[in-house]
C-alpha cells in the first residue's frame, strides 16, 4: 500500500459530558492512504458522520472529542496531530488540506451570496495575496471542472438545481487542491441518475488531481462500486474493514453480510432480500460484549460477554483486512 495521508488513532467522540454522555464514536482506528477512496458505511446513528465531523473538529456542541489522535501527513513536512492545532492553525488546515462535501446539497450554500462570492471567499481567506482577477479566474476554472458553465458565476444558489448546487460544492471543495476530501452522504438529496453522474465525475477528478476521499454513506452498493476499501461501522465502532471486492464477495462480519443482503444485485441469480432484524442500538445503553449480538443471527457464547477486538482474520486474504467478530478470532490485533 502507498503512504498514509490521514491516520485516525483511537478516536473517541461523545455527546454531552459526564454520566449522561453518549459515546458516538468508540476507539476508532482508520487509515486513509494517498489517492484511495475509503468508504464508510453503516446504519443511521452508527457514528459515521460524527467521525467525519470529529476528525475535522467541526462537532457542534455538545459534541466533544474525548480521546485519540488524527495524524495528518502533509505532502511536504512532518505529520502532525489535527486535534492539537491552535485555532489559527486549524483555520488554515481546514479546506486547504481537508475539504468536506456535506449531506444537504440544498442548504450548503449561503442563500444571500452569489456563487462567485462563496467560491472566492475561500481563496481570500487562505491565499490573501492572490489578486481579485486570479481569484475569479480560479473560481471559473473550478466551475468548468465540475461541468458548470462559468457564466453561472453570478447566479444565486436558488437559481441552480440540486445537482448543480452539489457540483458547485464539489468544485468549492477542490478549489484549494486539498489532499483529503470527505464526502458525507454527498448524493442523498439527489435522484439516482444525478448520483451516478456526480460520483462518476468525482472519481474521474480524483484520478486527475490525486486527492484521497473518505466517502460516507449508508448505501453499500454505491461504495462497492466507487471505493477501494470499505469500513463498516456499527454502534460507534468499526466492525470490519476490507478491500471493496472482498467485502462484496465475502464479508466476514454478520452485520456486513446483513447490509449486503439488504439491497438487490443487478446481475447474477435471484435471491431473497433479507434485512437486518431489530433496530440500531441505543448509544446510551449499549449491549454488553459485541454491540451487534442481540441482532446477530450467528451469536454464540462469547458474544454477550466480551467485546471483540478489531484484528486480522485467519482467512487467506487476512493480511489485507480486519474484522471484529468472535466468529473470526483475531490472530494479531491491530491498533
Amino acid at each position: 500500500m502507498t503512504q498514509p495521508v490521514l491516520e485516525i488513532r483511537n478516536l473517541n467522540v461523545e455527546y454531552g459530558l459526564g454520566e449522561q454522555a453518549v459515546r458516538a464514536v468508540r476507539d476508532v482506528n482508520l487509515t486513509l492512504h494517498r489517492g484511495e477512496v475509503l468508504g464508510l458505511a453503516g446504519e443511521s446513528g452508527s457514528g459515521k458522520s460524527t467521525l467525519a465531523y470529529g476528525l475535522t473538529r467541526l462537532l457542534a456542541p455538545p459534541g466533544v472529542i474525548t480521546g485519540g489522535q488524527v495524524v495528518y501527513h502533509p505532502e511536504k513536512g512532518d505529520p502532525y496531530d489535527v486535534l492539537g492545532l491552535s485555532d489559527r492553525e486549524l483555520r488554515s488546515f481546514r479546506w486547504a488540506e481537508t475539504a468536506i462535501v456535506f449531506q444537504g446539497a440544498m442548504n450548503s450554500l449561503n442563500p444571500v451570496h452569489k456563487i462567485s462570492t462563496q467560491l472566492t471567499d475561500v481563496l481570500r481567506a487562505h491565499e490573501p495575496t492572490m489578486s481579485e482577477h486570479s481569484r475569479n479566474a480560479r473560481a471559473r476554472e473550478m466551475l468548468k471542472l465540475v461541468g458548470i458553465s462559468p457564466d453561472r458565476m453570478d447566479a444565486y444558489p436558488h437559481q441552480l438545481s440540486g445537482g448543480m448546487r452539489q457540483r458547485v460544492m464539489i468544485g468549492m471543495a477542490l478549489i484549494l487542491q486539498p489532499q483529503v476530501v470527505i464526502m458525507d452522504e454527498p448524493t442523498t438529496a439527489l435522484d439516482v441518475v444525478m448520483q451516478r453522474q456526480i460520483l462518476g465525475q468525482l472519481i474521474e477528478l480524483r484520478e486527475r488531481l490525486g486527492f484521497s476521499v473518505i466517502f460516507i454513506t449508508h448505501d453499500l452498493s454505491l461504495l462497492v462500486e466507487f471505493s477501494n476499501r470499505i469500513a463498516i461501522m456499527y454502534g460507534g465502532r468499526i466492525v470490519e474493514e476490507a478491500p471493496a471486492g472482498s467485502i462484496y464477495r465475502d464479508a466476514l462480519h454478520p452485520y456486513s453480510k446483513g447490509l449486503l443482503g439488504s439491497f438487490p444485485a443487478l446481475r447474477g441469480p435471484r435471491r431473497e432480500l433479507t434485512g437486518i432484524p431489530g433496530s440500531p442500538p441505543d448509544l446510551k445503553g449499549m449491549p454488553t460484549g459485541c454491540s451487534f449480538h442481540p441482532r446477530c443471527p450467528k451469536a454464540f457464547d462469547p458474544c454477550a460477554g466480551n467485546i471483540p477486538v478489531l484484528g486480522r482474520p485467519g482467512t487467506p486474504d487476512g493480511s489485507a483486512r480486519t474484522v471484529a467478530c468472535w466468529l473470526h478470532p483475531t490472530e494479531q490485533p491491530v491498533g
Binding site: 479546506w95 456535506f102 442548504n107 475561500v122
Partner: peptide, 11 residues
C-alpha cells in the same frame, strides 16, 4: 448547513 460549511472552509 451553510454555517458549518463556512466553518469548514476555514473562514
Amino acid at each position: 448547513d451553510y454555517i458549518t460549511v463556512a466553518h469548514a472552509k476555514g473562514l
